[in-house]
């Protein structure tokens, strides 16, 4: 078995004085795809944000190691450069910041970290265009402001495009499948699969088992009320689709 790429141990987090994560433990190894499911408000985005280093969360306990180093001690930009990518549930619009400029700046930040030279402008455009074709994104979006006036689906595809350009070691994708039409879901699934490799891992936060038809997970976890209440293989996702979450919540309550 590979060494863990991400190891979360008993992570406890509160937001605005309220405890949201009550001891989450999760191990993701290189080469694996994990799906994290769970009811609204259960803490999935909180977990994703804390991994990416978003301010505003208080870590009240536990530890997270990324590729062996203390992730929580790193600044957000260091985490990104070390190969952690967060695909946002709600990507922000940044008027006036050129999409291509951000892609290139982000890529160069990552390359500098690896001791590589900045990418040549011509090579960059060729590479990005190729990935845009994979993601079926209109090339015109390159010259627009970041997500500025993008449709919901375009924003999500743009997140995956960024991921493909940055080639992270671990991608945490927070509901990248929400709001996508059926074809776009396939495209996004294909994009994620492009990234799958023995030395990378993906954690997908999703509400729907549909995405998992395209990106087959190694493990499925259910996060409910700030705890992982059940883990299993992709059968678990199918079962959730049929039965909903109530039976799990009841079982969890019985244990607690």
């Amino acid at each position: 078995m590979n060494a863990p790429l991400l190891q979360i141990d008993d992570l406890r987090v509160s937001v605005a004085g309220t405890a949201v994560l009550h001891g989450v433990s999760l191990t993701v190894r290189a080469g694996e795809v994990h799906a994290i499911m769970g009811p609204n408000g259960s803490g999935k985005s909180t977990l994703a944000h804390v991994l990416a280093g978003r301010p505003g969360y208080t870590i009240t306990g536990g530890a997270v190691r990324f590729d062996g180093t203390d992730l929580l001690a790193m600044a957000p930009e260091e985490r990104a450069r070390a190969g952690l990518f967060l695909g946002f549930q709600y990507p922000v619009e940044i008027a006036g910041v050129n999409n291509a400029y951000l892609l290139k700046a982000a890529l160069n930040a990552r390359r500098r970290q690896r001791g590589e030279a900045e990418i040549d402008a011509f090579d960059f455009l060729n590479m990005v265009r190729a990935k845009m074709r994979v993601m079926q994104i209109d090339e015109a979006l390159l010259t627009r402001g970041v997500n500025e006036g993008f449709s919901g689906g375009e924003k999500k595809r743009n997140e995956i495009l960024q991921m493909l350009v940055l080639e992270p070691r671990l991608a945490v994708l927070d509901e990248t499948d929400s709001g996508l039409d059926i074809d776009a879901l396939k495209v996004v699934g294909r994009g994620i699969n492009t990234l799958r490799s023995p030395d990378r891992a993906v954690a997908l936060v999703t509400h729907y088992q549909r995405l998992l038809d395209h990106v087959v997970p190694d493990q499925v976890h259910v996060l409910a009320r700030g705890r992982i209440v059940r883990s299993g293989d992709r059968e678990l996702a199918l079962e959730l689709e049929r039965r909903g979450y109530d039976w799990l919540l009841e079982a969890a309550a019985a244990v607690a």
Partner: peptide, 25 residues
């Protein structure tokens, strides 16, 4: 805007570069 700033940081930009990018925009 802290949300915009975090988005840029989460893409690996230096805080100063991210701030200046937003100001310039």
């Amino acid at each position: 805007d802290e949300d915009l700033l975090f988005y840029l940081l989460s893409r690996g930009l230096e805080p100063a570069a991210a701030r200046s990018l937003l100001k310039w925009a």
